[in-house]
Nucleic acid binder design. Sequence first.
DNA 1: CGGCTTTGACCCGCGC
DNA 2: GCGCGGGTCAAAGCCG
Length: 235
Amino acid sequence: MEMLNQGLMEGLSSSQIGFYLNSTNLNNYSPPPLGTNHHHHQQQQQSDDLKPLNHNHSNYYLQSSFTLDHVTSTLTKAASREDDYLSVNYNLWSAAWGEGTKGLFQLGGSKRSCNGEDDYPNYVGVSAVKMKKIKGRRKVREPRFCFKTMSDVDVLDDGYKWRKYGQKVVKNTLHPRSYYRCTQDNCRVKKRVERLAEDPRMVITSYEGRHVHSPSNDLDESQGGTQPQLNNFFW
DNA sequence: CGGCTTTGACCCGCGC
DNA sequence: GCGCGGGTCAAAGCCG
């Protein structure tokens, strides 16, 4: 559980991370309590983690301390719900503030506002879950989300093993985009890594799909006949 | 030799 | 229909 935070959130403490969500078109989304399906996790808060910040603007924020897998599992559910019920595109942005940082970050669309002193110190943002409905047909799309991290390394350690299967230059960008697939057979999760054009210090990591297994840490604890932990890390 | 990356080709959806 | 942009394939290369 710790390695993720090491890889993704340098400068942030692993458990004390606050999020501020601003969803652009996420009008009717009422996220499930984060503690719902987390049997293994002890003492989750029930519904205080994610609640509307502003009903009119459909902003959501996550408060109190939680780890990234809380956020990502929530985003996964959100993505599924959007695909199943609403079928609208939406952007879901969030950002984290590190310790010692006063202001909240707020991301909406392309413009960014921040009432903190300086821009993203120890920035970690979760952003843009876009589910597209395919032409009338109710096609089940794999849940997707991505997040930004300020990082020197492109490929962040998320506990899973990936094999690169492609690289593309994206238009109007200096940096290429890399395509990865989960190496576990029967697992079709894909991952894209690229650098933000406007700010190459930021790495954008996108995930698509749901792992059917636990992270392939050597000697993980998932033995004992339990089902794969879907709320682990990202999926 | 096995697993992974590299890299041009191929493919496909979309806008004009 | 055509071309462009982006996603994937797969052969070849790299490395332990």
